[in-house]
Simulated assay, not measured.
Amino acid sequence: MTVAKNAYKIAHRKVAHMRGIASSQRCIYCRRHAAQWALNHSRATKVTDGHLVWSEAPDDYDPLCVACHRIYDQAFAKDGQDALEDVDRRLRDKGLARCLLEFTARTARWR
């Protein structure tokens, strides 16, 4: 295992140790159960080996579900830092719409 890959894994273990497992949290965007800790590229102090990107600070990670994490990382990979504000807004809008639909479905049962 390369030094960078080992540091990447240690950083993720540190997040889980200090903040708990991601699945015990809600996704910050859609409010479904999170599955993974995702590096918040907008605020993180990043370390990279040219391929892997991580942070040594546990607070630089957010709990995300698999779908939101994939969308976030793909936008960053495609367009870099410039894409993050837009994808953050779109994911939050998607999450609010999902919450509204779920709330509407729950309250319809009360009638």
Rank of each mutant, 00 (worst) to 15 (best):
A34W: 06
M18V: 14
R31L: 02
I10K: 07
K9C: 10
R13H: 14
I10W: 08
Q36T: 11
A7K: 14
I28W: 09
C30D: 13
K14G: 05
K9I: 15
A11M: 05
A11R: 02
A22L: 07
C30L: 09
R19H: 04
R26N: 03
A7S: 10
Q36Y: 05
A11T: 02
W37F: 01
W37D: 01
A22C: 06
H17L: 05
K9D: 15
I28V: 15
A11K: 03
C27S: 08
I10Q: 05
A7R: 11
H12G: 00
K9S: 13
R13G: 13
W37Y: 10
K14M: 11
R31K: 05
V15C: 13
I28S: 13
R13V: 07
G20Q: 03
W37I: 01
K5F: 14
A11P: 10
C30I: 04
K14V: 09
H17P: 03
R32F: 05
S23V: 04
H12R: 13
A16S: 07
Y29I: 12
A7H: 12
R13M: 12
H17C: 06
N6K: 13
A35C: 08
C30Y: 06
R19I: 07
K9Q: 12
C30G: 14
Q36V: 03
S23D: 09
I21K: 01
R13S: 14
A7T: 08
K14D: 13
R19Y: 01
Q36L: 02
C30M: 11
G20R: 03
I21A: 03
A35W: 04
Q25T: 01
Q36D: 12
A34G: 15
C30T: 07
R31G: 00
C30R: 06
I10N: 08
R32M: 12
I28P: 11
H33V: 11
I10G: 03
M18W: 09
R32D: 08
R26A: 06
A34Q: 09
I28R: 12
C27W: 11
A34T: 09
Q25F: 02
A34S: 11
A16I: 02
G20W: 05
Q36F: 00
G20P: 04
M18F: 08
Y8N: 12
